[in-house]
Computed example of a mutant assay.
Amino acid sequence: MTIDPRAHLRLARPSRDLAAAEHFYTAGLGLHVLWRATAQAPGEHDLVMVGLPGAAWHLELVGGAQLAAPPAPTEQDLLVLYLAGPVGDALVARLVGAGGRRVPQGPYWDRWGVTVADPDGYRVVLSTRAWSNG
């Protein structure tokens, strides 16, 4: 079996404060809440899935009292969004206003975009470049 290039992608990250993380990704970045669940039994956790309707990817944020692993982001835990154009000051201001903080990411990404850490410290790179497969 091979992986179909159209397969849906889910990226899951733990969060100390789901409400703060949700606010960052929705009010700040402009993603939509696609699904929400509350832990109902031992071993389960609260979660909120954010993304864009119809996209082949989404971000799952997990948290709550039964969170098994706390967030442990590193400088290389990047979610890169290729915008294929300038990163607007208003977008960066919205992300910061929604609980993010602008951070340096090194010469390459600082040249080709803007990096903002979410409330848990995970980094979102807004790249001015377009994605290219080749």
Rank of each mutant, 00 (worst) to 15 (best):
G30E: 12
P107G: 05
W109M: 07
H32G: 01
G100R: 02
E75S: 11
A93T: 12
A41F: 12
G54W: 02
D46F: 14
L95F: 14
G106N: 01
A55R: 06
P42Q: 08
G30D: 12
L83D: 11
V62S: 02
L34N: 04
A65W: 02
E75F: 13
E60Y: 08
A117E: 09
L18D: 02
G85A: 10
A19R: 10
Y25W: 15
L61F: 11
G43M: 03
A41E: 14
L52G: 00
V33R: 14
L83G: 00
A117S: 03
G106R: 14
A21H: 05
H23C: 15
E44N: 11
W57Q: 03
P70Q: 04
V80T: 04
W57M: 00
L52N: 07
A20N: 00
P14W: 12
S127F: 06
H58D: 15
W109E: 02
L18R: 01
R102F: 09
A68Q: 12
V116R: 06
P86Y: 01
A19G: 12
G30L: 05
H45W: 09
L91G: 11
A65I: 10
A93R: 11
H23A: 12
G54C: 11
Q66R: 14
P71N: 07
W109P: 09
W35F: 12
Q40W: 07
A55D: 05
A55T: 01
W109C: 02
V96M: 13
D118R: 04
L47A: 14
V114W: 01
L47H: 04
G85W: 00
L34W: 06
Q76G: 10
L67W: 10
G99W: 07
A41R: 15
E22C: 11
H58V: 08
L61E: 04
Q105D: 14
D110P: 12
G99A: 01
V48E: 08
V87S: 10
R123D: 12
P104A: 13
T38P: 09
L61R: 00
D89C: 00
G106I: 08
E75R: 14
Q105C: 14
F24Q: 07
G54I: 08
A93M: 03
T115W: 06
L29R: 03
A21C: 11
H58E: 12
P70G: 02
H32L: 03
G54A: 07
P73Y: 07
